[in-house]
Design a protein around this nucleic acid. Structure first.
Lengths: 192, 192
DNA sequence: TAAATAATAGACAGATCTGTCTATTCCGTC
DNA sequence: GACGGAATAGACAGATCTGTCTATTATTTA
């Protein structure tokens, strides 16, 4: 009974299928039975790896959080040494993401939405991700010598989440560009 | 069979209860049976007024859209004649909303999230509201003589939606203030 | 080879889901 | 008082939901 985070092929495959279905259709819209049929895994295998559907979702969000932050960090790293370029690389990363074929909004915003109650484990897990990203932004703002790094990061977070919602509504990448140019303006103001 | 938008006490009461439950718990999380039990209305009454649950949700979103825009317009109107104050009144309105007891995020963002597919009627209806609000912002920006009213309105929309997501995640009103002060800065830049 | 571990299929429970249908009752208007 | 529209309760269908349990089969390890 691998209750803790023990990796296993079945568990990984289950999570990959679950990610695909939940992200495409929604958490409540996808039932356990469909997930099992699509992944070709027995029901008891699922319940041996996860205590409940809710726990599976939390594990998925935590995994996605790690992957997403690693992906952002890689994009920032590839942007070179200029602190300004590094910060704006986040918005270029956004644009690429919006343009990807299976983009379907932000799974964390969607989790906040589907589980709207503040104390719900899924809601809390989803929001933790947003806070973690904001911390990354704070460091980037600090490196760019913004006057109030945390404050600027707060604002950039608003722009980013707003851009994600807009991209989900329009299926266009334009909001990433708007957010990017606004971010550049704000950074200039915060360092001038 | 009042297929079109004919108002009736039962229909109104049904919509009021549906709003309360859906906004509190989510669209998929609340079943028809609970809605009927809470409203004390017979099942056939619901299906005489609405062809399906989906249609009820669309009607609710359209009603909420009208109410919300009227509420914003009232706040703007009460802000006086100064175009700057009128524009920033939107963000004060946001702050009041975030502080209200039953605030639970933006029902339109939540609808986009629960019905993520672009062509879904609920998804489309929800996004239409965001576009309508953006049009209001464009007019306010134009009145404030911003250089590019539509562009500024785009950016302000990002700030607003980001602030709503943040308020839903934190249960705090701070994001409205951040958005407001950023909006003030951007407006200054756009008119200087 | 024997024992432990992991995964399987599938029945089962009990609740819940949306939507349909019927038969009855209420209520205002003529 | 009779009529017609609106609402009622509740059965019903048929599907689906999460989670449990059992009995069997693989797979690995000692």
């Amino acid at each position: 009974m691998p209750e803790p985070e023990i990796s296993s092929p079945k568990r990984d495959h289950l999570m990959a299928t679950a990610w695909r279905l939940f992200y495409r259709d929604g958490f409540r819209a996808v039932g356990i039975d469909l997930l099992l049929a699509e992944s070709g895994v027995a029901k008891m295998t699922l319940y041996n790896h996860f205590a409940s559907k809710e726990e599976l979702i939390v594990a998925l969000l935590e995994k996605r959080d790690r992957e997403l932050r690693a992906s952002i960090a890689a994009a920032v790293g590839a942007a070179g040494k200029s602190p300004t370029k590094r910060l704006l690389a986040v918005f270029d990363w956004l644009e690429v993401w919006f343009g990807s074929a299976d983009f379907n909004g932000c799974v964390f915003i969607r989790a906040l939405s589907e589980y709207p109650e503040a104390s719900h484990p899924i809601h809390r897990t989803a929001w933790r991700h947003k806070e973690a990203v904001k911390e990354m932004l704070t460091e980037l703002c600090a490196a760019a010598e913004a006057r109030n790094p945390a404050g600027l990061a707060d604002t950039l977070s608003l722009l980013i989440d707003g851009a994600i919602v807009a991209a989900h509504g329009t299926r266009e990448i334009a909001s990433a560009r708007s957010a990017r140019s606004t971010a550049a303006q704000l950074l200039k103001l915060a360092t001038a």
